[in-house]
């Protein structure tokens, strides 16, 4: 059986508020699914449930044929779920290179080696540098993560996920707040990752032109519920999206 990721009736309640409400959805390799929906729709929460930062109130998550609902976040990462966060989430006082090197080290399974100095592992450093070049941060290696511009921090966030070599890539608004000239680096990278038909890619994105150009499929979340799922053209044209997400009254087209 090919790799699949599935959520079944996935639900989480915060007090009285249901942030994700009975979402059932299956994701397949070679498919880039865009997840859209208005602010507060539950997109990030849905990601948190899948990658293990939050535990659902109800529902199940299956990955690669196994029920992973009770698995901790680190074990889900090791199973192949990669996550880039919406709110940049780095090691602020470590260098850019060290940030990525740590992710490479994690992917390499070097968790408890305490007998050798870290710089002896040149393979890990070389791999980190290679990834930094891919996200166009090659010239900022020795800078601490906090000293980076917002756009560069977003790129580093993506670099950490790529370094994990996951089976599933979860991008949460990767280009938010980036300047126009920085955006293509990230979009090209996602397009490149798409070439590999064995990967599942999930992308939360507000910009419709980005979604249109990259997505093979769109799902729409609204008030925590999955309200539409299908080919980009159909979903964008559907009245429910026109109304719920794009804020356009039904019947009028949003070109």
């Amino acid at each position: 059986m090919a790799l699949t990721l599935e959520t079944r009736d996935l639900t989480i309640r915060f007090g009285g508020h249901v942030a994700v409400n009975g979402v059932s959805c299956t994701f397949k390799p070679g498919e880039l699914t865009a997840i859209v929906g208005p602010n507060g729709a539950g997109k990030t929460t849905y990601f948190n449930l899948i990658s293990g930062q939050l535990r659902p109130t109800a529902g199940t998550i299956f990955f690669d044929g196994a029920d992973i609902t009770q698995l901790s976040a680190p074990l889900r990462t090791r199973a192949g779920l990669g996550r880039a966060f919406q709110l940049t989430n780095l090691f602020p006082n470590l260098s850019v290179e060290e940030n990525v090197r740590l992710a490479v080290q994690a992917a390499n399974g070097t968790h408890y080696d305490m007998l050798r100095p870290w710089m002896v592992r040149r393979d890990l450093i070389a791999r980190a540098d290679e990834i930094l070049d891919r996200v166009a941060l090659g010239n900022r290696r020795q800078v601490t993560a906090t000293a980076l511009s917002h756009g560069d921090q977003r790129k580093l966030e993506v670099a950490l996920m790529i370094a994990l070599e996951p089976k599933v890539f979860m991008f949460d608004e990767p280009t938010a707040g980036m300047s126009i000239d920085e955006v293509p680096v990230v979009l090209n990278l996602i397009a490149q990752l798409k070439q590999d038909a064995s990967k599942i890619i999930l992308l939360v994105e507000h910009k419709m032109d980005v979604v249109r150009s990259l997505a093979d499929r769109i799902i729409v979340l609204h008030n925590g519920q999955l309200v539409a799922d299908g080919k980009p053209a159909e979903v964008i044209a559907s009245p429910i999206v026109q109304e719920a997400y794009l804020g356009v009254a039904p019947g009028r087209s949003a070109a």
Partner: peptide, 11 residues
Amino acid sequence: ENRFRAEALGF
């Protein structure tokens, strides 16, 4: 520096 992120990396 950031325990949450270290966990997310698989540690």
